[in-house]
Design a protein around this nucleic acid. Structure first.
Length: 260
DNA sequence: TCTGGGGTCCTAGGACCC
DNA sequence: TCTGGGGTCCTAGGACCC
């Protein structure tokens, strides 16, 4: 099972001999018993289609979406239904008269790469055809920890901003320590009252989970933003974690070799 | 549709190295 | 000092997801 947030998950039932009805029946009964809630389930040959299917019969439904159904059931849907297409891409596609997944699938790959870049273009090409080879991710390592707060009222007072930044740094550090991660990169985020948002990052030479070091880095970043407007939001993020699989990470030995 | 808080991934440009 | 090609690392911002 792959968790996706608090109320979604993908289950690989490939090797479970029971019928779809038996499996979905047990899942629904179990969820009902433990939470009192209903759920909607999509059954498909990959995650992309399963997610779309789960959305097709909303309260308490079960929907099967097979590859053979792509043309009849997937293609009529608006592009926005595809995972990975948000408001911006929806608008972009609309501007070139593409509103359904079928119309998207009619676009040649070269066009998609041209409009959306190699990575995203290739993704859209496959997604529009219901193709998704992505595996279930049952365990993963976090890549960052962050905390942010929006003020009740926009703030001009530097003291308030500074204290908030320090508090957030502390929270991030506690998160890191609790999960035993050390980071090299600290990023702060400042959003002004007009929603203009800036980030400033600093990468230090040694991995750390020290509150003082991380707070200092955060403040060094803060200095690089001119606070000329009222501030709505402050955030702190730590990333670029030390690889915990390597128990010893001394950077480099003092050995250099030069070949002539 | 928007807000809020927590994330991930991608891109582009710059600095630097060989 | 410039050109060219290849690479890494870092930064800033944006799109997207739940």
């Amino acid at each position: 099972m792959e968790d996706v947030g608090i109320d979604e998950a993908y289950l690989d039932v490939t090797d479970i001999p029971d019928t779809n009805e038996e499996i979905t029946g047990r899942i629904k009964a179990g969820i009902k018993e433990k939470t009192g809630l209903t759920c909607s389930i999509g059954i498909a040959s990959n995650k992309l289609l399963a997610k779309i299917a789960s959305d097709m019969q909303k309260p308490d439904g079960v929907t099967v979406l097979m590859e053979a159904d792509v043309e009849t059931k997937l293609w009529p849907l608006p592009v926005r239904k595809l995972y990975g297409i948000g408001p911006k891409t929806e608008e972009h596609l609309k501007s070139i008269n593409i509103e359904t997944i079928g119309q998207l699938a009619a676009l040649p790959l070269e066009k998609l790469l041209e409009y959306f870049g190699n990575s995203y273009g290739q993704y859209l090409y496959e997604a529009a055809r219901g193709i998704d080879e992505s595996p279930l991710v049952t365990r993963w390592e976090p890549k960052s920890f962050s905390r942010e707060t929006t003020f009740q009222e926009d703030v001009r007072d530097w003291q308030v901003i500074a204290r908030t930044l320090a508090d957030l740094s502390k929270d991030v550090v506690q998160d890191m320590q609790g999960h035993q991660y050390k980071a090299r990169t600290i990023t702060i985020k400042i959003r002004f009252s007009d929603f203009e948002t800036f980030t400033r990052a600093m990468t230090i030479s040694d991995y750390t989970d020290s509150e003082e070091e991380i707070r200092k880095a955060a403040f060094a970043c803060l200095k690089r933003i001119e606070l000329k407007k009222k501030v709505r939001l402050v955030g702190v993020r730590a990333s670029n974690f030390q690889d915990r699989n390597k128990d010893d990470q001394h950077h480099s030995s003092g050995l250099g070799i030069k070949l002539f």
